[in-house]
Nucleic acid binder design. Structure first.
Length: 581
RNA sequence: GCUACUGUGGCUUAAUGGUAAAGCACGCCACUCGUAAUGGCGGGAGUGUGGGUUCGAUUCCCACCAGUAGCUCCA
């Protein structure tokens, strides 16, 4: 048998391979549970899935059985035969096969669409293709999980069963992938957060994270950095209240468009809301006095804590919570300043993400169904975002209908350890709030005009950003953020005096240092310090006391040998300053 | 919120329709030790919460709560 080598780097090849595997899985399932109705079964980034409607509740114990049947189909090496049918015949064909979901799919195809099917043995599926030439081409696959998914992604429609699976050209590559996923799961920020004592979540406050002393160090350092960067870039900082009266939220449009996500409270006889966004507060700050065009662009930052009622099933560690701090800012400007300001913010995001070594992708989210404003306003706003990002030469994808209710946005997405993406930065162009709050400035003509405003965040939320960062660095934070920068370990407690002397020098240089002078074996102390992911471990024994040194181990670089205390401190101070990963 | 699954000391896990076991962690004692776990002893949970079935429930059933995966939604 001739062995053709698949070009696995080619996205189309991966797609065809996994899409074929998806048909094989569907065929196997139809053989084992003939009453199963098929919905859709596409290839996705790291594998494929099939959505099914069946009396049988699929469980992981079924996976081996299904895989066994899939192997038979692979061995039979059925050719994947494409054929086309006219619309009416195609519908009749699927009606006869009692596949109502397929019938609906065909009915919704455009009038002039070519309706194609693929046949493999006794199994036929509606499919645009393309596919591998035969089922025998698919060598290694594994069913991964089963979950619910709404038919056509519509939460008002039926919940189907989705089986996720993956396929690779060889068993070795499949095994390597599974191994990688298992390694990635060890970096889960929820696991590391617990192990490293950074934050916690309790039954008493679902979605309301507690930050613990070590997590607070990371958080405070990030905020300090954030403030420095904003001062450099011409921002001022404000703080607005968490609770404001209901009328404000009616004015802003949140009452009409965001009420379901808001928490409410009463003060005396008045109705109040807990802010889900910072903008209305910022509007009031703007309105406190009259502004001139000479004051623009006016960049007003706020580390603002917001509360949102997220659906219980959507909560996820620090990534998706019910209270979080947005590193928000509102920029008020003249029409001719819009382009530069958007570009400056996009550049700001890029600078910050690059510093942490993050890869990211950008999406332009357009007008959602539930929104306010005119088509012209939306078009103008969307164009402004599109132009700015295009001019920068940053690639982006369009995310249809995912904008905020008050305006379109450019979203910056980062990946977690297992490849899920989370929106962090966002730039939102808002033509609505300035109108609703009747914001004005005096132009050079002496007349009042309406300013243009953008909302923007860089981290997105401090919580989410810490979650992403924790996974990205597997708990080995860059030195400037590390809760414990130096851990000094004495070989025996008799060297404690010198250890505390070294610790004092570190502290004086501004480093976060701890001494482990317990009466334990050095191997044990090292093990604990490594498990805690302390950045630098300094071992102190007879030798070090003698020549005023310490023996250093870095969490990122391993053994660094023995160095003088001064050299050690200087090296770390330099690393903190450089903010390297 | 929806579908499925899970819920045992601080953590990780074990076990059973007959009254909860181990390791880590914690406390005490001994050991004074050189790069991933020294040894001994000790305290600590009635098994998410509330009901039900049963002579007896942690185990079976129901509801609720929380978590996990995905969907929907979203920073």
């Amino acid at each position: 048998m001739a062995k053709e080598k698949l070009n696995w780097e080619d996205e189309q090849v991966r797609h065809d391979y996994r899409h074929t595997a998806s048909h094989i899985m569907a065929q196997a399932i139809k053989r084992l549970w003939p009453d199963t109705k098929l919905a859709i079964g596409p290839a996705i980034d790291n594998g494929f899935y099939y959505d099914l409607d069946s009396e049988h509740k699929f469980v992981e114990e079924d996976f081996l059985k299904i895989q066994k049947e899939m192997k038979k189909i692979v061995q039979a090496n059925y050719p994947m035969e494409r054929f086309e049918l006219p619309r009416e015949e195609a519908i009749k064909f699927m009606e006869e096969k009692e596949e109502p979901y397929k019938v609906e799919l065909i009915q919704d195809l455009p009038e002039d669409a070519v309706i194609s099917f693929y046949r493999q043995g006794e199994f036929v599926d509606l499919c645009a293709g393309p596919h591998m030439e035969s089922t025998g081409k698919v060598k290694a696959f594994k069913l991964m999980s089963v979950a619910g998914a709404y038919w056509r992604g519509d939460s008002d429609r039926q919940m189907l069963q989705r089986i996720y699976a993956t396929a690779f050209p060889t068993q070795e590559e499949l095994d390597a992938y599974i191994q990688r996923m298992e390694e990635a799961k060890k970096r889960d920020h929820r696991k590391l957060g617990k192990e490293m004592d950074l934050f916690m979540l309790t039954d008493e406050g679902p979605g309301f994270p507690f930050f613990l002393p070590k997590g607070m160090i990371i958080r405070n350092e990030l905020e300090k950095f954030w403030r420095e960067e904003h001062v450099k870039r011409g921002y001022e900082e404000i703080k607005t209240p968490l609770i404001l009266n209901e009328q404000l939220w009616r004015t802003s449009g949140h009452w009409d468009h965001y009420k379901d996500n808001m928490y409410f409270t009463k003060i005396d006889d008045g109705d109040y809301a807990i802010k889900p966004m910072n903008c209305p507060g910022s509007m009031l700050v703007y309105k406190r006095k009259m502004w001139s065009y000479r004051d623009f662009p006016m960049r007003c930052g706020e580390l603002g804590q917001v509360h949102r009622h997220e659906l219980s099933g959507a909560l996820h560690g620090l990534m998706r919570v019910r209270t979080f701090t947005q590193d928000d800012a509102h920029i008020f400007m003249l029409p001719e300043q819009v382009n530069d300001e958007i570009k400056a913010v996009a550049q700001f995001c890029d600078d910050v993400y690059k510093m942490f070594g993050f890869e990211y992708h950008v999406e332009l989210s357009t007008r959602p169904e539930d929104s306010m404003g005119t088509d012209e306003e939306w078009e103008m706003a969307e164009n402004a975002l599109r132009n700015a990002i295009s001019e920068m030469g940053v690639p982006y994808v369009i995310n249809e209908g995912d904008g905020a209710f008050y305006g379109p946005k450019l979203d910056f997405h980062l990946e977690d350890s297992i490849g899920r993406t989370w929106q962090c930065g966002t730039i939102q162009l808002d033509m609505q709030m300035p109108q609703r709050f009747d914001l004005t400035y005096v132009g050079s003509d002496g007349e009042k005009h309406r300013p243009i405003m953008i909302h923007r965040v860089i981290f997105g939320s401090i919580e989410r950003f810490i979650g992403i960062l924790t996974e990205h660095c597997a708990g080995k934070f860059p030195l400037w953020l590390a809760p414990v920068q130096v851990k000094l370990l004495t070989v025996t407690p008799e060297f404690g005096d010198y250890a505390y002397e070294v610790a004092k020098k570190c502290e004086e240089a501004g480093l976060r240092v701890e001494v482990d002078n317990r009466n334990e074996k050095i191997g044990f102390k090292i093990r604990e310090a490594r498990n805690a992911r302390d950045s630098y471990i300094g071992v102190i024994g007879e030798r070090e006391v003698g020549d005023k040194t310490l023996t250093v181990r870095s969490s990122k670089e391993g053994e660094l040998g023995t160095m003088s205390v001064d050299d050690f401190v200087a090296k770390l101070v330099e690393e903190v300053k450089a903010k390297t990963m």
